[in-house]
């Protein structure tokens, strides 16, 4: 390309590059530096601490507990939401009365802030005034939804209520891209609807579902808002995600060094997913 055009290219991309360097490179440097320092809210002085923070994090039972909870939670919601999203996409993959309206309704959770959703969940699940416990009591079911025994599945269900819309939408979009001839020829060959789903739809959609599951897994790994507002990580620390643990370590305990070390460990944990995600996108440039 000609020289003038190269200058223009750089000029057009410069706000982006400037932004990246201020809000990515500089913070990454700050994060690394903090992780390698003794940096407490209670002490004015910040002193170099080598790898002390990393050692302390790895020896801390709460860190492993939070990590274990996060992994189990992320896997559970991803599997559940992909199954429900796929089922719902199959339902929508045909004409039926009210489809347009119900499609809009199905997308509503995507448009609502998870934190506001969490406030509404607390309202409808409230033991004294909530509609859900009220209904359950009418049927003679007296359980505390926030009890330690049920809290995990309560949180998984609430996550599914918010994010099934997302998996549904993406799986549905992938389904719409399938060539209809495949279906037609299978139907002509006498395949039953169930056979078509098992032998044709699922195999063709597999790559798309894999990438959707991967996106959900990564996103649910950083769950913060909903659980923090619902339970604050409790009862005790039983529902503490790694994100909540990092936040609390930094802004409640006041240990920035340890919290930074944890977030770096978290990034290292997610790094293996990067090439997988990048490969899924067609990045050819004209």
């Amino acid at each position: 390309m000609r020289g003038k055009s190269r200058a223009a290219a750089f000029l057009l991309a410069s706000p982006f590059l400037l932004f990246l360097s201020i809000l990515v490179i500089w913070p990454t440097y700050l994060g690394l530096k903090t992780a390698l320092s003794r940096d407490l809210l209670s002490e004015f002085e910040i002193t170099p601490a080598g790898l002390d923070n990393f050692r302390m994090v790895l020896e801390q039972p709460q860190f492993w507990e939070a990590l274990r909870f996060t992994i189990i939670f992320a896997l559970s919601v991803t599997v559940l939401e992909c199954l429900l999203g796929f089922a719902l996409a199959l339902v929508f993959d045909r004409k039926f009365p009210g489809k347009t309206f119900l499609f809009s309704v199905t997308l509503v959770p995507i448009m609502i802030a998870p934190s506001l959703m969490a406030v509404m969940y607390r309202l409808i699940l409230n033991q004294n005034i909530g509609v859900v416990p009220g209904f359950l009591q009418k049927f003679g079911i007296e359980i505390s939804i926030f009890d330690e025994r049920y809290i995990f599945w309560t949180l998984v269900t609430l996550d599914a209520l918010q994010y099934t819309s997302f998996t549904f939408l993406l799986i549905y979009a992938a389904l719409q891209n399938m060539p209809s001839e495949v279906y037609e020829s299978a139907a002509i060959d006498g395949a039953s609807p169930r056979q078509i789903i098992a032998r044709i739809t699922i195999p063709i959609l597999k790559p798309a579902i894999a990438i959707i599951a991967m996106l959900r897994l990564i996103d649910s790994f950083r769950t913060f808002d909903t659980i923090y507002i619902m339970t604050g990580g409790g009862p005790g620390t039983t529902t503490q995600t790694i994100g909540i643990h990092i936040y609390k370590t930094a802004f409640i305990t006041g240990d920035f060094g340890m919290a930074s070390a944890m977030s770096i460990l978290l990034v290292m944990l997610l790094t293996p997913f990067m090439p997988f995600i990048i490969r899924q996108f067609r990045l050819d440039v004209k």
Binding site: W26, L30, G31, I218, I246, A259, S260, S263, M274, L283
Partner: peptide, 23 residues
């Protein structure tokens, strides 16, 4: 450049809260 942008999508926001707070 697009790859870098994509890689950023994977980084959890919580990684940036402490540096952003300081910055």
């Amino acid at each position: 450049l697009l790859r870098i942008a994509l890689a950023l999508r994977i980084l959890p926001a919580v990684f940036f809260i402490i540096p952003f707070y300081k910055l």
